[in-house]
């Protein structure tokens, strides 16, 4: 017996690991846990149209949250109806991602488009679906 450890791999495979395998069910469980994490952290997955409606409402002038909400309502964009808090979450997220910038005027927070936000909006108007996807992924990523 020179070095019994040279047989360790086959020895363990034939004994302790013989019945051991990370089953398909276990893998599916991992996948489900990951999906749940995504959904849980995301709180709400916004539709692209909603995001674009928010950006569009800020195209010409800075607005406060309440005015954005009114503007969306006028445009028949009702995603935040009865759930206005979500609008502020989205605004916050867009600000974190550098798409919006904000300014406090007389204790009210006014949002406006950053140059990055303007670019996003412009590329959308060129009807480039690629940018739309990028925008959404950006948001999903930000909310993780």
């Amino acid at each position: 017996m020179s070095n019994p450890l040279s047989n360790l791999k086959s020895a363990m495979n034939k004994t302790i690991f013989k019945e051991a395998s990370f089953s398909k069910e276990r893998r599916i469980a991992v996948r489900e846990a990951i999906r749940e994490k995504q959904n849980g952290n995301q709180l709400h997955s916004w539709k692209e149209n909603t995001i674009l409606a928010v950006l569009e409402s800020l195209l010409h002038e800075p607005k406060q949250g309440y005015d954005i909400s009114t503007n969306l309502f006028q445009k028949q964009e009702l995603s935040f109806q009865g759930n206005e808090g979500q609008l502020y979450t989205l605004l916050h997220l867009l600000e974190n991602k550098g798409i919006l910038i904000s300014k406090w005027i007389e204790e009210k927070k006014y949002y406006s488009l950053s140059s990055k936000g303007k670019k996003f909006l412009a590329s959308y108007k060129e009807e480039s679906p690629k940018h739309l996807i990028t925008l959404k992924s950006l948001l999903e990523e930000a909310s993780l």
Binding site: M12, F17, A20, S21, F22, R26, R27, V30, R31, I34, R35, Q38, S137, E140, E141, L144
Partner: peptide, 23 residues
Amino acid sequence: TFINDREAIIDQLMEEYSDSILY
């Protein structure tokens, strides 16, 4: 990476290493 890619990476890692990790 975006979300779907990350999921794919974990899938591939499981494919390749899950038994080894279990051992």
